[in-house]
Nucleic acid binder design. Structure first.
Lengths: 249, 249
DNA sequence: GTGGCATGTTGATCTGGGTCAATGTCCTGG
DNA sequence: CCAGGACATTGACCCAGATCAACATGCCAC
């Protein structure tokens, strides 16, 4: 299943980068940005390709520019749980750690903006803005993980599905600094199996609940990988928590 | 249920602090440490007391010196999930955020070493060692949250209980830089209900599984809140994952 | 002591989601 | 155009853990 090697892609200048407002580099100005620009390189992965296996050496860190990847953990008997979902602007890899703790798989075609790990660790010391932004992002990720704990521990299958759709809609909207409402479309670059691994369900249950939500008019399907939501409010209601999604940070 | 006010406790000097090797302050030396020492103050909470409610203003941050606290999240209909377990040396509060995102409850008598939030945020800028250590701790917490996702998403009730005991044993041992093995005792400063909230189960299921593990000799109970484990290896086996618990960091 | 309350255990029953299995729907390559 | 494989849907049945309920234990206040 895993393809051969990652492809190197043509580089884009930072000032037209779609994630420049939210990635690790987002607090950097002129000089710092040109230093980063001189160090960065792109890597591309096809949907389904494995970026790293848990336990393998990982000598780079990077940001998701476009596409989506899942971090995945397994019990010896094969039970699989997704433990991280990397969307555009999210950070991959852990400074100070040379071995990947989780298997990373591209769930859709994926473009990464990478730095070799060692030089990046030096930047963390030299440029406090980067370390500061990374701390902020890590704290955000921890908050997201905690919402996810609530989802896995206490929500019903239907609420889980609705919650996932809400999360994807919010993340998609945040990139263009908007807040989802009314009738919206959600890109769903995940197989039913990947959704099941994210939600702690089986793929059959995911399929059944998707059908049920469709039958009841909460969602419409446009192909398998695109969902139309007639009323975002209704979807949020189905997700169990009525929080408004917090500030537009 | 929540008691009146938090008690201020007599302060201990940093050099005899039981968590000095692992807390946010652990990378600090002479001058930095005396600066911290001049700013710190202790707060004590009794078992069951609420430290902050989600949504309330929180003007301090701090480290758990002794005892244990749970971070808790709720759906409107009352379903509750613990989303963080604060053990000695763990950090409470988020720099840059003035409102608590989660309800924090002392699950046993709790001693906190606190700093007012604003001055602490200044320290994060002035003393990079502190920011660095906080990043490291946050990354560790994120890893722990990810193991917890696997637990909630994919483990059976019995594996969940065993996993919780393993986690507590490892954390207790780490404080004195040891690794648990053979016959050990585990302090369990949690009610069955708190355990259930941690594990995404009902308290009845927790009770039943504890009884089952006892019946089969995996654990012995010494009162309700102390567990004797005849063979730590056996317990790890029951927990589902056979990882060795990683390096003694 | 004894009454009352929090906490914990155990039993009987129910059910949401898992498991196993068949079938459907695209794609893609020849 | 058709064959084959990945992905998805649907049905029938089952079981781990939830729910509802009774009872046990310990502890403090009086």
């Amino acid at each position: 299943m895993p393809h051969d090697a990652a492809l190197v892609a043509t580089q884009q200048p930072c000032h037209i980068c779609p994630i420049k407002e939210r990635a690790v580099c987002s607090h950097c100005g002129g000089d710092e940005l040109s230093e980063l620009e001189s160090m960065k390189y792109y890597r591309r992965f096809e949907a389904g390709q494995v970026v790293v296996w848990a336990g393998d050496r990982l000598d780079f860190v990077g940001s998701v520019v476009s596409g989506m990847a899942g971090l995945t953990q397994q019990l010896e008997d094969g039970r699989t749980q997704m433990v991280g979902l990397l969307l555009p602007s999210d950070f991959l890899g852990r400074p100070g750690r040379d071995v990947a703790a989780y298997t990373v798989t591209a769930t859709s075609d994926l473009l990464l903006c990478c730095f070799r790990r060692k030089p990046f660790e030096k930047l963390l010391i030299d440029i406090p803005r980067i370390a500061g932004r990374l701390l902020e992002m890590t704290l955000d990720e921890l908050d997201a993980a905690r919402d996810w704990l609530l989802l896995l521990g206490r929500k019903s299958a239907r609420e889980k599905i609705a919650s996932l759709l809400v999360i994807l809609a919010r993340r998609e909207a945040a990139l263009i600094k908007r807040r989802p409402e009314g009738r919206i479309a959600i890109e769903l670059p995940l197989t039913r199996e990947a959704m099941a691994d994210y939600l702690g369900l089986t793929l059959e249950t995911v399929s059944r609940q998707m059908s049920a939500l469709k039958r009841e008019g909460v969602i419409e399907l446009d192909g398998k990988r695109r969902v139309i939501v007639p009323s975002f409010q209704r979807l949020v209601l189905e997700s169990g928590d009525d929080s408004d999604g917090g500030p537009l940070s």
